[in-house]
Simulated scan of single mutants.
Amino acid sequence: MSVNGTVAEGFEGVREEFEAFLVEEPAEPGAQLAAYLDGRLVVDLWSEGVERESLTGVYSVTKGAAHLLVALLVQDGVLELDRTVASYWPEFAAEGKDRLTLRELLAHRAGAISVEGGFSAEELADDRLVAERLAPHKPYWEPGTAHGYHATVIGALTGEVVLRATGRTLQELYEERIRAPYGLDLYLGLPEELEPRFVSLQEAAPTPEQLAAFAGQPLPGKDDLFATSFNLRTDLVDFVNRRETRAKGSASAGGVGSARGVAGMYAAAISGFGGHGPLLKPETVAEFTTRQYRGTDLVTGEVDNFALGFETSGLRYPFLGADAFGHPGVAGGQGFADPASGVAYGYTRRRFTFPPSGGAPENDRLAAAVVAAARTVR
């Protein structure tokens, strides 16, 4: 399978690693890889099955974009991390959620992972509807006492706080403050005129175990909270392939973009480019990249690695700095910023992973190659 695109001098090994991965995975229907170094695009690659300008559903990579906006609002003093969610959104106080702070919400400690019966694909696409149904609902654990991944709803929850505090939707503010100024191909609400650039996700052939999981049964070795939080009664592949999902831009998993757009968003966060400075101050990065709690995630069963809205990417990839931050997507995509190396990384692909997991395995080697090259040429 051929690789298209360019790399800057010193990053030839990244292209070789990408080519090697595609040789091992000849059925890959299309992947993109991009990276910035100190605000300069140094890797811009794509395989057969996609073009440079192709856009696809990025699932939870979306959460990184949503929570970059939240970080900006905290930096501006519009939101306060240790203020209760209910002080912004009074209806959320029901069923014992009244003392939960915004900090705890961003660390996935609300327990408000879903509602009885789950959400349909149409409902999940609508953040306002999701928030309205979650507000009066009893949480799945006592808020603030434990953490568990709010896979399909966290963006609706934080988005409602943004709306109540500013009078503007998270999607509107992301477009105004982040996407448009930097010209990013990462959308929370894809304009209809860009639909011709969208390429659908393609399923790998699922095993019987995987089919059972996506029929709403718990995955082997996982608690029911996993199926509840991921809303596995909804076909997640169909979810991002729906025009309604792309149009509304659910802040949990409805984003649409390219690897270049993902990497560019993280470059904007820490370095800036195109005549614009970095979005985040060092003290904001420090606040939002500090792991909040230690222990086991009640939903995933894994050791927790959440900071505030972002994952602490250095725990996933030990070759990154301690303040690296980002978010993977269930289809295998990944995005992160590593202030220590100056790298901003983006990876998207059309092949969905089964069972659901964040960040496809090839990211380990691709990201390592990017960071190694960056440290050599910087």
Rank of each mutant, 00 (worst) to 15 (best):
Ala227Gly: 13
Ala227Ile: 03
Thr228Ile: 15
Ser229Glu: 07
Ser229Pro: 02
Ser229Gly: 10
Phe230Thr: 11
Arg233Gly: 14
Thr234Gln: 13
Thr234Ser: 15
Asp235Arg: 03
Val237Arg: 13
Asp238Glu: 15
Phe239Lys: 11
Val240Trp: 03
Asn241Thr: 08
Asn241Cys: 07
Arg243Ala: 15
Thr245Ile: 03
Arg246Asn: 10
Arg246Met: 08
Ala247Asn: 08
Ala247Met: 13
Lys248Thr: 10
Gly249Glu: 08
Gly249Trp: 05
Ser250Trp: 01
Ser252Trp: 01
Ala253Ser: 13
Gly254Leu: 05
Gly254Pro: 06
Gly255Asp: 10
Gly255Lys: 01
Gly257His: 06
Ala259Asp: 12
Arg260Asn: 05
Gly261Val: 04
Gly261Gln: 08
Val262His: 03
Ala263Ser: 09
Ala263His: 09
Gly264Lys: 11
Ala267Lys: 03
Ala267Thr: 10
Ile270Trp: 00
Ser271His: 13
Phe273Arg: 10
His276Glu: 14
Pro278Thr: 12
Lys281Trp: 09
Lys281Tyr: 05
Val285Tyr: 04
Ala286Asp: 14
Ala286Asn: 10
Glu287Pro: 03
Phe288Trp: 09
Thr289Lys: 06
Thr289Gly: 11
Thr289Met: 07
Thr290Tyr: 01
Thr290Val: 13
Thr290Ala: 14
Arg291Ile: 13
Arg291Asn: 08
Tyr293Arg: 15
Arg294Cys: 00
Gly295Cys: 01
Thr296Phe: 11
Thr296Cys: 02
Asp297Gln: 06
Leu298Val: 07
Val299Pro: 03
Thr300Ile: 09
Gly301Pro: 05
Gly301Arg: 02
Gly301Gln: 08
Glu302Leu: 15
Val303Leu: 13
Asp304Lys: 02
Asp304Gly: 15
Asn305Gly: 11
Phe306Pro: 00
Phe306Gly: 03
Leu308Cys: 00
Gly309Glu: 02
Phe310Ala: 02
Phe310Met: 04
Ser313Leu: 10
Gly314Arg: 09
Gly314Cys: 06
Leu315Phe: 11
Arg316Ile: 00
Tyr317Trp: 14
Pro318Thr: 11
Gly321His: 04
Asp323Pro: 00
Ala324Lys: 05
Ala324Ile: 01
Ala324Val: 02
Gly326Trp: 12
His327Lys: 14
His327Cys: 02
